[in-house]
Design a protein around this nucleic acid. Sequence first.
RNA 1: GACCCCAUCGUCUAGCCAGGUCAGGACACCGGGUUUUCAUCCCGGCAACACGGGUUCGAAUCCCGUUGGGGUCACCA
Length: 500
Amino acid sequence: MADRTDELRVRFPPSPTGYLHIGSARTALYNWLLARKHGGRLVLRIEDTDAARSTEASTRAILEGLRWMGITWDEGPYNQTDHAEEHRAVARALEEAGHAYRCYCTPDELAARREKARAEKGQYGYDGTCRDLTPEQRAAREAEGRSHVVRFRVPRDRASFRYEDRVYGVMEVPADTIEDFVIVRSNGEPLYVLSNVVDDHRDRVNLVVRGADHRFNTIKQILIYEAMGWPVPDFGHIPLTLDPKRAKISKRRHGEVVTVEFYRDRGFLPWAFCNFVALQGWNAGDDREVYLTPEELVEAFDLSRVSRTNSVFNYDPGNKKFFTDPKAIHINAAHIRGIPLDELAAHLRPWFEREGLWDPAWDAPGEARERFLATLDLIRQRYHLLGDFVTLGRAWFADDFDFDPKAVKKRLSRPELAELLPALAERLAAVEPWDAEHTETALRAFCEERGVKPGLVINAARVATTGQAVGPGIFDVFASLGRERTTRRIAAAAERFFGS
RNA sequence: GACCCCAUCGUCUAGCCAGGUCAGGACACCGGGUUUUCAUCCCGGCAACACGGGUUCGAAUCCCGUUGGGGUCACCA
């Protein structure tokens, strides 16, 4: 198919030196959103130029993270190293055209001069020692056996460099703050600032959305595009996400909580995670915060509404309940409550399987599946994480559930329950038909006869049947659990907590 | 240090560009209500325009400065 020149082409080029963290995930998401919204294409490129730090495992982890989030790419993944020759060719072309030159200064010399400049409080960018070497001077240095890097010859005919950022607006910096930067190492390997441009050009990327920490690279890279006579893409930089102490987040400092896989493992719905991440630095301008489907977010998302203010990822190390940003958990809970039941069931399946609780009958259309979905619907209202279904909700799917000690203490300690519980079980066993309405009538009548408050019996029954002090209305619990399990558990609780 | 960016409740943010409603929403927190329970739901509350000047009848909104925070200054990406 012929290329449409007006087609939006964005990219996500992670460097495989670690895990997919929350900041990169957001960059990927924004690019994906843009591609979807405008019918464009997203290119995935692995920037493994830094061979020393790049690992296969890291690439896998990143791809896995993206797949989990539901971020799909239209092209790639390409490997940057596959194009190393091309990068070198461009460096040569730049050199031949006079836009770049060989620099023979050694790292030691550079460091010394930098130190001196720093001490004198001057600019300490590259001082241009090799910028205008004559062929003879170059030959002399080659003869000395000196190796060289290739530096870009930054134009000195302007007072400043500027470009218009899609998020930050006009970016303008004094020209003398941009030094003649290195584009090829002394070992012949091209550097990111060059390779990235060559790749983006080859991949026909026309909008670059990346972290605000790249703003100065953009100035340099536009210079390269111009020197090559290539069309310059649009750039949009997005604000950074900081920790509560306003420091850049990193796995090294913050641990798992900043990695995508952490959210997967802790029971986040992938799209709920995306929903939260999207809100760090962007909002639609209305009061909406929950986007249950990708389509809704794609529709609402717009680069022009991305904030210029860094956001703080609000997590509190050591907090058991809020092990990550409370809002992230809230959004996850909203999604758990709000998405279609069959989708929820699909996301839950691995959780049940890991616990050995999955029943294949839940897969096929039929009564078992209907009951399963109805149970999910009943208990999902107060759950925040997928794991809650098999921990807090285990009693709905297995008999070997745990009793919350606090619940037992609070609701199963009154001595009269020793006698009430077995009697209640017996009474319930005869209720016909078994549904919320009839079990309620029976239980209330039972309490009336015994002269006890329904609350006593109800709360005891909740703990007895579910192990928890909180949960859905008890008669819905009865109906959901069924007669057999309900009565057996109530009787068993009497045994277990009051038996001699 | 130089350069660039940013600055509204504890956090995410709306409002700013085109000055003029008690500065709005969400999360968290607190209180009340519903209920047999609450980790559900409903209602209410607490809580912010960093500071100082200026322009203006009027400034969160425009201008300047200060302070604070962040980013970048590599033969990393």
